[in-house]
C-alpha cells in the first residue's frame, strides 16, 4: 500500500517503520523524530507568551484578586503543574509498594503482570 509514492531517499529503518505502521499513521511518522520532540517545547511556550500578551490587552471581565498580575492564569498553570509533578518523587517514596502488595495480583494485564496467568490480548 505504502509503496506507491515511496520516496527513494528513505533509509532501511524508515522503510521498515513505514511498513509496520498503520496506513493512516504513515504521514505522521515524523512525530517520532527526535528533532521534532526536542523542539516541540517552542509551540506551547510561544502560545503561552502570545496568550499572556493577549491577556494584557483583553483583561478578565470579572477579575479575581490574582488577576491583577499580568498572565495570572499562566502563572497558576505553570506553578501548579510544576508543583504537582515535583510532588511525585516524595509521594512515590511514601506510597508506592510492590505490585503484589495486597496479594491480589495487582491489575489484570496477564502478559505483564508479575504473576502467571493466561494471555488475554486480541489481535
Amino acid at each position: 500500500m505504502t509503496d506507491k509514492n515511496e520516496p527513494e531517499t528513505l533509509s532501511r529503518k524508515e522503510l521498515e517503520e513505514r511498513q509496520n505502521a498503520h496506513p493512516f499513521a504513515v504521514p505522521f511518522l515524523w512525530l517520532g523524530n527526535q528533532k521534532v520532540i526536542d523542539n516541540f517545547i517552542w509551540l506551547p511556550v510561544l502560545g503561552m507568551i502570545a496568550m499572556i500578551a493577549l491577556g494584557i490587552v483583553f483583561p478578565q471581565a470579572k477579575p479575581a484578586p490574582w488577576d491583577a498580575i499580568p498572565g495570572s492564569w499562566a502563572l497558576i498553570g505553570f506553578v501548579a503543574y510544576s508543583f504537582i509533578v515535583l510532588c511525585a518523587k516524595p509521594l512515590t517514596a511514601l506510597l508506592s509498594r510492590d505490585e503484589t502488595y495486597y496479594g491480589e495480583g495487582g491489575l489484570p494485564d496477564p502478559e505483564y503482570s508479575t504473576e502467571h496467568s493466561s494471555g488475554d490480548h486480541h489481535d
Binding site: 511556550v45 502560545g47 503561552m48 496568550m51 491577556g55 478578565q60 492564569w73 499562566a74 498553570g77
Partner: peptide
C-alpha cells in the same frame, strides 16, 4: 485567552 494561558503554561511546564 485565559483558559489558553493556563493550558499552554501547563504544557510548557511539562
Amino acid at each position: 485567552v485565559f483558559q489558553l494561558q493556563l493550558l499552554f503554561a501547563a504544557i510548557s511546564a511539562f
